[in-house]
Design a binder for these strands. Sequence first.
DNA 1: GATCAACGCGCG
DNA 2: AAAGCGCGCGTTGATC
Length: 577
Amino acid sequence: MQLSYVKSSVEARQHAAELANQPVLGVDIETTGLDPLTNRVRLLAAATLSGRIVVFDMFHVSWDSLQPICGVGWVCHNASFEWRHLTYAGLTVPPLHDSMLLDRLVSHHNRKLDEVAADHLGLQLDKTLQVSNWSAPDMRSEQIEYCGADALATVRIAQELLPQVDKAGQRRLYDLWRQAIPMLAGLTLRGQSFDWDTHSKLIDKWTAEKKTLTQQLQQHLGGINYNSGPQIGDWLKENLPAATLKTWPKTASGRLSTAADTLELHAKQPMIQPLLRYKVVQKLLSTYGLGWQKNRHPVTGNLHPEFSLGMTVSGRLACSKPNTQNPPRLTEFRQLFVPPSGQVLIGADFSQIELRVAALLSGDWNMLDAYRKGEDLHTKTAAAIAGCAVEAVTVEQRQGAKPVNFGNLYGQAAAGLARQANLDYGVGMTTADATQALLKFKLAYPQLEHWKRQHLGLAQQQRQVKTKLGLVRDFDRQHEGYLRGEAQNMPVQGSAAEVLLASLVRLPAALAGTDAVLYHTVHDEIELACSPGFADRVAAELRGVMMQGFLDVFPEGEALTHKLVDVKAGSSWAELK
DNA sequence: GATCAACGCGCG
DNA sequence: AAAGCGCGCGTTGATC
């Protein structure tokens, strides 16, 4: 290993010129903090496959002297991090490989660089310096070597794993992930503009309501902590008749459950309604009120959620700090998601994407037929359950078919279906009704049923299932007996996620010549921000991109694009019409 | 004080 | 709560 530590721009240019002849470089950076907007890159290490390492000290080297090495391919571990910092620093970052994503595809797990290096290279990386002082005036030699060693490990891991990804038939998925990196990193860097003034008024409102509810609960439950399940459980034990307690649902560890579902079962008790409302308001206030404020960026004032690839078992995107993929659907909250001033939001979502994916994966003739004809699958299922013509299905019957369609996909049983129907769809359904509905569903869509059995078998025998583009989920001993839902869900949810990613990566080309940028994405939807003058064009492009994204993953689905994408425009996330 | 598991709940 | 799946985050209470 030959390492050079570079502290001047003149020297940096010479090294950069040499490195620019390489086919690929491993690149690792050390920064003074995680946020590119408030921190600086201290070290940038570039390593060649032959073991030549150059560590640039970016406190002393100008960014433009590194531009030559941007002409070659790079490998980083968790490349989104490097993309954000280096793009913010002004570098034109080349297409990136990602050793973390390669390892995710090969190992089927999420692992840190040291674990990956140990596994694939037999190399022990010491990570104790990761949190050392990267702002110090002088870098210690250990720090310089640490950064260089990571860069070298990264490029060697990629050399090892890329052929394996090819061999496993995962190259398309890997390239899709690679292309998505700049899209998602760019979204995190720009952030999401948010109406904090109105948000603060919402907090005041929730705070006042919590106070009222606390006073009401004081009458019923006394001075216990209403956030505490154990304390509420103790109160129940002391105040409810033994007969009621006997059948009261328990948590996994044997305590009395205090979940909303459970409390609903005893809705007649006088303290239940205020307690249920308290839980709602407490959730809003803690997670979406006060907790949310912590994510207001000091420089931009925006939210800057991280969108992570490869972190989920199904291949969906993970979103955190904050998770803007799960804000309440309340109009008053989603209204706070606004485009930058003077712009509009264009939003689109896939209609019933998981059901369409299930139809294509299973080849179920009746499901495919419904989507080909642009029929409504909920209505079709309702007709099958009622044993009547599609034309005769009532609004109520259609509503009752929704939970059957969704729940059945993942092996939901009768009791669960009945509960879900009552709770989330307002449909009065007994367990016996649910049993009948599930039976009718199986008869109506026989190939889907066959496909589900097949995947349960794959999970049991080969201990793994896959998405359309080849992401693998393994099942270990822990899943014994409990893997039906996971086995049937993963290929559907994961392939749907691939459809979304395929759409996202088509955006840059489609939006060229407009000022539209990605504002948000939530599993089956995409929001863009643009000037009003571009709105119509952007809306049309977004529809086209999502249709094409669907066809990229499911070329055999040409006939299923009817009513596939629903595009809307508006002044906030709540007002997309 | 920091960390962890358990619980509960927001979304698609 | 329960044999629908996938996430992230806040609070409590135990532990060191």
